[in-house]
């Protein structure tokens, strides 16, 4: 028998603190697998954001910085500009990236900053116990939209891939999902590609991964995957929104 699946080297042995069934853990592993397969562990610096993934600095086996809420793209810019040969990635939630950190992500993208962004969209503020996020769906009940999000009060969910695709800076923008194995495998490929873009100096690359927060959604882990598939994907269509290498294609 040959081992065909094991823990990536890029993850530490520290048990993750995420709630049972939270797909943050899957996305961590995908990042770890991408780092392993490109052989860049010793050259990678990660930036953890503020959100449930704040402890990411304990889980990745590379140098890590922990950024203030929303500021990870600025911190990553600071690192990348002084260490242009190193690989720099951020790992950010939707509250972090699409609300408080909107300016930082838009400008990093517009500058074509040569970093990789892993954006975990679970349509809610997980860490602070389930408040409405800018990505929460119309009608979604959260701690701060107890009767469901309404357009009249709170406007529309923000589609980050589509928004950033209006800029020339990004080299790669993709939205993927974590709701079943097939999609997780696709997500892994997209994350790897986003690191390759940086390796080849193509500039800003972001993968938005639709993710669950079963605890704050009030669902079982298995039902949360279904809810994601049935409700989030129609609002947040999967696909590649920018790929500069596709144009160069053969």
């Amino acid at each position: 028998m040959k081992t065909v699946f094991e823990r990536p080297q890029a993850l530490t042995e520290v048990p993750m603190h995420y709630c049972p069934g939270c797909t943050h853990g899957i996305i961590h592993r995908l990042v770890g697998e991408a780092i392993d397969s490109l052989g860049i562990l010793g050259d990678t610096i990660g930036v953890a954001s503020v959100g449930c993934s704040v402890f990411a600095y304990d889980y990745f086996n590379c140098d890590m910085q922990q950024a203030a809420h929303g500021r990870a793209p600025a911190v990553a810019t600071g690192i990348k500009r002084v260490l242009p040969e190193k690989m720099v990635f951020t790992y950010q939630g939707d509250g972090d990236l699409a609300s408080i950190g909107m300016a930082e992500i838009v400008h990093a993208a517009a500058r074509g900053e040569n970093i990789t962004v892993v954006f975990v969209n679970n349509a809610i503020y997980g860490m602070t116990s389930g408040q409405m996020a800018p990505t929460s769906l119309i009608g979604q009940k959260t701690a701060t939209s107890p009767r469901g999000r309404t357009v009249e009060e709170m406007g529309y969910p923000i589609k980050m891939c589509e928004l950033l695709a209006t800029l020339e800076g990004p080299s790669y923008l993709a939205r993927v999902s974590s709701h079943d194995a097939r999609h997780v495998l696709q997500a892994g490929k997209a994350i790897k590609k986003a690191f390759e873009m940086q390796q080849h100096n193509k500039g800003f690359a972001m993968v938005e991964v639709l993710s669950t927060c079963n605890v704050n959604w009030g669902l079982s882990p298995v039902n949360a995957l279904k809810w994601l598939e049935e409700n989030m994907i129609p609002q947040y269509p999967l696909g590649v929104f920018r790929d500069v290498t596709a144009k160069e294609g053969n």
Binding site: Q65, A67, A68, R71, V75, T77, G78, I79, K80, R81
Partner: peptide
């Protein structure tokens, strides 16, 4: 925050 990142990178 860019200063934070760069200072952290030495």
């Amino acid at each position: 925050n860019m200063v934070y990142g760069a200072a952290g990178a030495g």
